[in-house]
Computed example of a mutant assay.
Amino acid sequence: MSSHRTEQTEPNSPTVLSALGNKYSAEILCAAGTPKSAQTLSEDIEIPIATCYRRIEELVDAGLLTCEGRQLSEKGRRTNIYRRTVDELEVDFSSDRPAFSQKRRTEAKNQIQDKLGE
């Protein structure tokens, strides 16, 4: 996948705008540059875990965050691991409806960040 800006046709504008408009959504996206569990995101951003799960669900529905798999937590439970799908998102309000352009994260960038984080 290319890292060039591409016009986004899905998800729809109201879903993305609604997700981004909620408190903590931007902080979650910033923190999710590397794979993290909801618990880790909650602790990193210092927000209640229930709020974190709600925001994660909204961001996943909007296509801005993805579940990359599952891993065992420190307590031995299987937990979902999330990472953002975009590095940049631009909203153009000059037409009848908002239009989005985005800079999607590439798999190569994810792999490099994963190696640097080890």
Results as ranks from 00 to 15, higher is better:
T51H: 07
F100L: 05
R78V: 01
R70Y: 15
N12F: 14
R105Y: 05
S101W: 11
I47L: 11
S37W: 01
S37E: 07
A50Y: 01
T106F: 06
Y24D: 08
T106C: 08
E107C: 05
S95R: 13
I56W: 03
T79D: 02
S101D: 08
S18G: 12
S73P: 11
I81V: 15
C67F: 09
S18E: 11
Q113G: 00
S73C: 07
A62G: 06
R83C: 03
K109F: 11
L17G: 08
I28A: 02
T40Y: 05
D96P: 13
C30S: 14
Q39F: 04
T40C: 04
G69L: 02
P11Q: 09
A19L: 02
M1K: 11
V60D: 05
Q113A: 15
E10Y: 10
S25V: 00
V86S: 03
K23I: 08
G76F: 00
L116I: 10
E118C: 07
T9E: 06
A62I: 03
R78E: 00
G69C: 14
V60R: 08
L29T: 09
E10R: 15
I45M: 10
A50K: 04
A32Y: 01
A38Q: 01
E90Q: 06
G76I: 08
P35Y: 09
L89D: 00
C30Q: 11
C67I: 06
S18M: 06
E10A: 11
A62W: 09
Y24T: 12
I49T: 07
L64E: 03
S94L: 06
L89R: 05
A108L: 15
I28E: 01
N110F: 04
I45L: 09
S42P: 04
H4L: 11
Q8H: 10
R77N: 12
Q39Y: 01
E58V: 06
E58P: 01
H4F: 05
L20C: 03
S42T: 06
E57M: 07
I56E: 03
R54N: 08
Q102L: 12
Q111A: 14
R84D: 04
D96F: 13
I28V: 09
T106I: 01
G63P: 07
K109D: 14
T66I: 13
F100H: 00
P98T: 10
K36T: 00
G21Q: 01
T34V: 14
R104D: 06
T51V: 12
E58W: 02
T85K: 06
E27C: 06
K36S: 01
T66H: 10
V60N: 03
Q8P: 12
L29Y: 05
E7T: 15
S18A: 14
A26F: 08
E118A: 10
P48V: 05
E57Q: 14
A26Q: 12
A32N: 01
S25C: 09
K75M: 07
S95D: 10
A99D: 09
E27N: 04
S13N: 12
K109E: 15
C52A: 09
F93V: 12
L64W: 06
R54K: 15
